[in-house]
Simulated scan of single mutants.
Amino acid sequence: MAAFGSVFMPEMALSTFNGEHWSAAQNVAADKISLHPGAHVLHYASTCFEGLKAFRHEDGSINIFRMDANIKRLAQSTRLLTLPKFSPELIEEMIVGIVKRFATEVPAPPGSMYIRPTHIGTEPTIGKAAAPSATSMLYVLLSPVGDYFSGGAKPLRLLLEEDGMRCAPHMGMVKSGGNYASALQPILQAKQAVNADQVLFCPNGDVQETGAANFLLIDGNEIITKDLDTSFLHGITRDSLLTLARNMGMQISERKLSVDELLERASKPHTEASLSGTAAVMTPIGTLIHNGKEYTVGNGGAKTPTIDKLRSALNALQWGKAPDPYGWLTRV
């Protein structure tokens, strides 16, 4: 089976900004784009993107999950990177249009169509290290994906990193490629040194996020996760899960969480911990590694009833097997 996100539809939606106005959206071949080697994005990382999914329901309809929230976050990343502004209507037209074009290719659950809107600076200049790109390109790729846990959900091993940061604090809420690139070396080093799957960045003891996902600690009926600020990504899956949990009667604590408190709570037999993100929804954590010592989270991730309940509830809504009282689904 092909790796997650490595298969693409043959066409993508594309629009360009020439410094004055955006071109009409069009579908073009998805295997190439034309960029000058001096394009701003290649030298000064003027790039941001989103990740969302379209699902096939039993009635045959195709439904995109939380498109409005992803468009809003892409616009926020665009603004914070000083890329040319686009209208929400343009990117919505592009997303809906390309999903409709390949509606027959959307897999049935637990599969989905992964949608990747991307915005890059295209101005051919290497003299603008301290100035934004005057031109840009928006495109929307589609990738049909299967069950993220087709081989079974294996509890993760996380290294707690108190010295380093995933990215610059003011860039954390931007979904930009550079943030992911800056986390790669610490992740690879953690894999080699302690066989960790991911690094949980905790600068000065403040538990934040991993290289590519938000972190949730579940202590009985309480979910503890860092309060929103500019230092980490405001995950849409995170928000969705917290909304569902709140309506199930769980206590949601969005606040600072220290490494000391995390390790203390993790030792309780009923504690669960999870990463959240678009691809896997929730991934259980079995082990935390800190200062050369390993700490088992609850029962080591062997049984995660709350994580299973929350993931199932979100999947049921996405797959059309449960009501959508929040208006999260856009039928195309």
Rank of each mutant, 00 (worst) to 15 (best):
F215I: 07
N63P: 00
G327F: 05
F65C: 01
A30S: 15
F86R: 01
P323A: 10
G177F: 02
P124N: 11
Y180C: 11
M282I: 09
V297I: 11
H119I: 06
G111E: 13
A3N: 11
F149P: 00
P84E: 02
A24L: 06
G211V: 09
G60Q: 03
A30P: 03
P10H: 15
L241A: 02
I120E: 06
H36I: 11
Y114K: 03
P284N: 00
H290C: 05
Q192Y: 08
A24W: 00
I120M: 10
A181R: 04
E89P: 01
V7S: 14
K72F: 10
R157Q: 01
E93N: 15
P305W: 14
R166F: 03
A131V: 09
M250N: 13
S136Y: 00
E93Y: 03
L263N: 07
R101S: 12
R265F: 12
T125S: 15
I187K: 13
M173F: 12
A108C: 10
T47V: 07
H119N: 13
D197M: 05
I187T: 15
S182C: 08
W22F: 13
I126M: 09
S6F: 06
K256T: 12
Q318T: 10
E123F: 15
H36F: 12
A266C: 10
E123G: 02
V199T: 06
A30K: 09
A213P: 03
S258I: 09
I120T: 06
P305R: 07
I62Y: 00
H57I: 12
E264W: 07
G249N: 10
K309T: 13
L184W: 11
G298M: 08
Y180V: 13
Q26Y: 02
N70L: 03
K303S: 05
A190C: 09
S133L: 10
E105Y: 08
M171D: 07
A75P: 03
A108G: 09
V7N: 12
R331W: 11
G97C: 08
S182L: 12
F8E: 07
V28S: 04
K256I: 04
N315Q: 15
I289M: 06
H270C: 03
V199I: 13
L142C: 06
I236L: 11
K321H: 14
G220I: 07
L329D: 06
G19P: 14
A131R: 14
A168L: 07
I33G: 02
G51W: 00
F8Y: 14
